[in-house]
Design a protein around this nucleic acid. Structure first.
Lengths: 144, 144
DNA sequence: AAAATATAAGACTTTTTTATCCGATTTAAA
DNA sequence: TTTAAATCGGATAAAAAAGTCTTATATTTT
């Protein structure tokens, strides 16, 4: 459903948020270890997140990545997905047809429409704070 | 969501079924034109569909592809997806975690579970006949 | 001011997916 | 029986996605 880059982006954001909530700034190496991702590739993805102002970066010694409490609370999953994978998940026809729409539907359009609505709704209503909370209270995982 | 190969597979099956319901056997060239797909690649995908007994093939002059009325009625979308893309859509963690499950959930697991159920249900309950019917009665499209 | 540390940016490589090509095989028609 | 039409199967090629490497830039610490 998501690209590998997007999966890493989501996990990296959760990891960074969790560290931030514990008052710690983190860095590429820690993140890559924490989410079991390739370090250099993860660095690329973190740049996308910074550019979209989802996380904060600080260059230089003692620098790294951080996330503000307000952002953790107000950023929803959909924003990460849009930043990394674009709006295909919202707009692209599942059969890949350019002209598919409510007025000119592909054969699966009507059956899929409510599923897509549910999916997008769940991405919109799930915040990074929700995901971090799930992490601690339900022993959810970020690697393996 | 689906691979390009899977998108072609679905469209090719719908096209073949529609021709079959009109009493016509079709062939790779017609299918590729009808669904606007690359011919050689489409041929590859048709072989997968034949191997999984979703459509029928007949070699030699006047040969081509066909689909039995019973198959059109009883084959659901999920069977094509499983044949071409495997069971990732049913089983794979959206964050790509190997160990993710109800007992050991990734942070998005619980929020996504009902969406996945809806999605899989819609793939299971939608038959090729449904899709062909939608094609004619609602002017849905297979190309562009 | 210099050294050390960390992100930023771009070029490059590898892997996977998508797509093409060609020869072999099968079958129907001439 | 020959020829033409069609799928089948394997090798190859191109494009996209995933991943690496190197250099530049910024910032803190010493």
């Amino acid at each position: 459903m998501f690209s590998k880059a997007c999966e890493y982006a989501i996990k990296a954001t959760i990891f960074t948020a969790k560290q931030a909530l514990e008052g710690k700034r983190t860095n590429v190496k820690e993140i890559a270890e924490g989410i079991d991702s390739p370090e250099a590739f993860t660095a690329k993805i973190l740049q996308i997140l910074v550019k979209h102002q989802i996380i904060l970066s600080q260059k230089g010694a003692g620098g790294g990545f951080d996330m503000q409490a307000e952002k953790i609370q107000n950023t929803s999953l959909i924003e990460i997905v849009l930043a990394v994978d674009g709006d295909a998940i919202i707009n692209r026809c599942v059969l890949g047809l350019k002209q598919c729409s409510g007025a000119n539907p592909c054969p699966f359009h009507e059956k899929y429409a409510p599923v897509r609505m549910k999916l997008v709704a769940s991405l919109k209503e799930t915040t990074i704070a929700d995901l971090v909370a799930g992490l601690t209270t339900r022993m959810a995982i970020l690697k393996e």
